[in-house]
Simulated assay, not measured.
Amino acid sequence: MDLEFFLVAPLAVLFAGVSKGGFGGSVAFVASAILALVIPPAQAVGLMLPLLMLMDLATLRPFWGQWDMAQARILILGGLPGIAMGLALFSVISDDMLRVLLGVIAIGFVLWRNWPWATTRQTAFPKSVGYVAGFVAGLTSFISHAGGPPAAMYLLPQGMGKTRYHATVTLVFWVINALKFVPYAFLGIFTYELFIADLMLAPVALIGVWIGVRVHDVIPEAVFFPFIYFCLAATGVKLIFDALT
């Protein structure tokens, strides 16, 4: 935990908190990608999990009961085997492979969200697609906390309002993140140093959630997300470049 870490980590955690608190958390995984620029990727995901669990817990209360339970159940049930697959694969993936995975997911999500069909498609996906999306969400969430994009790809065409969508995503990842804790501990990802860093960054996480909840109905996505997409794409390119060089 050097000066570079303390310059980068609070901004990454604050961003994740704002995303979790008010914007569905679909891009909260960018915090892990940003942290992977200054610490090993495995440590980045280990550092973020307790903070993400804290953010989920803080976000549940203001949006309690506003979720779509049927859709949440589909994603959670699909996510269980995805978490198991992530546990099986995590120990054989190197830091550079994790960097490439994070980078590809980051750039792919930006391309998907800005592709013409992504904003015009109105047909809701069937349940079978939801289970597949849940599996991918569980897998990518376990490996890199990047379960938001596949969950968003399934939920966005379902025709939910912004608040219902946000509450559903919050519930899904509150459960998925809680289920990841014991396997992470089993893999030995958590360390005393990460625990101290989590304690120091917890207030930043809660401040981010508070900001996100307050601006949920104020800042339009048309303003918020273009900036996120730019940061996400730039981070993805940097991670892939670092891994390949």
Rank of each mutant, 00 (worst) to 15 (best):
V132H: 07
W64Y: 14
I107M: 11
M153T: 08
M55I: 06
P116A: 07
P41N: 03
P10E: 06
L206Q: 15
L155N: 00
P126F: 15
W210T: 12
G138Q: 04
V213Y: 02
P157G: 15
K180F: 01
I211S: 10
G65Q: 07
S26I: 12
I240A: 06
G130F: 06
I76L: 08
H216K: 05
G108K: 04
G130N: 07
V8Q: 04
P81I: 00
G24M: 00
L75T: 02
A167P: 03
A42K: 07
T59H: 00
I74C: 00
D96C: 13
A31C: 14
T140M: 04
S141A: 05
G79C: 01
L7A: 05
I39A: 07
D198K: 15
I93C: 13
S19N: 10
L206W: 00
V215R: 01
I176R: 05
Y229D: 01
L35I: 10
F15T: 02
F173W: 06
F241C: 11
A137V: 02
I196Y: 10
S26R: 01
A88L: 02
V237R: 00
G236H: 02
L139F: 05
P62L: 03
G103F: 10
Y131K: 08
V8G: 04
Y165H: 09
L111G: 12
K20P: 09
A106Y: 05
V213T: 07
T59M: 06
L98W: 02
D217I: 14
V30N: 01
H166A: 06
G108H: 05
K127W: 13
D242S: 14
S141P: 01
W117K: 13
L52G: 14
A178N: 12
V169Y: 02
F135R: 04
F195Q: 12
